[in-house]
Amino acid sequence: MAYLELKNVCKTYGQGNNSTEVLSNINLKIEEGEFVAIVGFTGSGKTTLVNLINGLIKPTSGEVLFKGEPVVGTSHKRGVIFQNYSLLPWLTVYQNVAMAVKEAFPKESKTEIKERVVSFIKMVGLSHAIDKRPKELSGGMRQRVSVARALAMKPEMIIMDEPLGALDALTRGNLQDEILNIWSKDKRTALLITNDVDEGIYMADRIIPLKPGPKATLGPEFIIDIERPRDKTKLNDNINYIETRNKIIAYLMAIGESRKSVSNTEYVLPDATPKSFVGQF
């Protein structure tokens, strides 16, 4: 039995003639302890897929099974790292993480909760910023807080929705290593959604492309057979890496081309001018 399983999952937004089928016939199996990356184009329905798995939305048809049980609503067993961090700006780093810990471990005493929060903030290297508010942090630091918040709930599975998408290349590289580091300690099941093939290859055991929507489906999987821990600097000389990377990119380019030739609809933009409030007050 797979740890996480999606069976013929379809998701349609809207009703009647206005409906759009975003995801169509998604079948996916993830085993325990696996690190799977789903690579897809922007707007291909990646976030919809994530929200289906973490329980924020329900599939129109098909089943999402987590440890053999259908997913109903969110659960502390599946930690989520959002693309846009989603920290609460009126809370400090400590309070943001503590809020999650208090919910996940309602029976723990205050000191236990405090210890847990402090240790996870230390793990992501933000001890010096523990009492700062999100606005005083850089993008990378904010995402670390978000990582700490998700991990502090001790989830059995981590779901990452383009967690590093908004960061610059250097910060991105650092955080990739940190996430891998944390993951390798207890090998929790992880699902990474990304639009960066290199990131997928560097981090995951398997890469599954998501064909562009509407009616997005999963493409054939690519196994990444590179030993861990992986060294970024030596990756470029690894034959395995080069071959897999080329295969995936060729595949993605091909489906990208096919999408281009299919869509010849002309979109008419509404003729609207933004209203100006300048000088009204």
Partner: peptide, 21 residues
């Protein structure tokens, strides 16, 4: 909506959701 999603993912109760988020 992001804050509501956070509240859902953290499974905050109604009281917590109203007063904390």
């Amino acid at each position: 909506k992001d804050y509501i999603n956070v509240a859902k993912v953290l499974k905050l109760g109604t009281f917590q959701k109203v007063f904390k988020v």
